[in-house]
Amino acid sequence: MKTVLKTEKIDKSFHDPVDFQVLKDISFEVKGGEFLSMIGKSGSGKSTLLYILSTMDTEYSGQLHIDGQLVTGLPIDSLAEIRNEKIGFVFQFHYLLPEFTCLQNVMIPALKLGKYSEEEIENKAFEKLKILGLEDQALKSANKLSGGQQQRVAIARALINDPCIIMGDEPTGNLDSKNSGIVFDIFQNLTREFGQTIIAVTHDEDFAHRSDRIIEMKDGNILAH
């Protein structure tokens, strides 16, 4: 399988309030179709690493390759394009745009990409919602949905541009065990059936152990692959 994401010797420090190295010499690879969980104690640097992987955080040393391309040092507008096209996000607090319908929320990244016509995008978005069992919620305003439903809409939105990688920072952190189970099943399904690559930060032991691979972090280092 081809390498979708690769880091080489990533270091990162915070200087405020005190100098503090949060990531030390992070090097690893993620292959296409892998379902990877990232675990570790609170404060070990998981979120920090994930934001670097997502290209949103550019203040680090070392190198980051996404889909075979070196993205370290690219101008921020190019990074925005890469995020739009190749990365899908799912956050702990679902983060939908509350004033838009579910369908519109799912469509937004695709409309931004502008690769397909609006009609095609709408059909596609509807399809993604269907995969997540939300077709009857499509025209509801996003803020009218339950937390679990919103998280599934966020997953549909992450899928809309058929990204290389889906990244999630505690995507189930805010959900009860039933909804966590649903989200996990969806992720697993995506990797098994569609060959989707997923990197998910989690505190949920069960979630991590059922995934394909675990990376454990401690004090800014990777402990085990």
Binding site: R83, N84, E85, I108
Partner: peptide, 12 residues
């Protein structure tokens, strides 16, 4: 924040 995370540029 979410729009920027999804790839909207500063100009957008």
């Amino acid at each position: 924040a979410i729009l920027k995370a999804m790839g909207f540029k500063g100009n957008d």
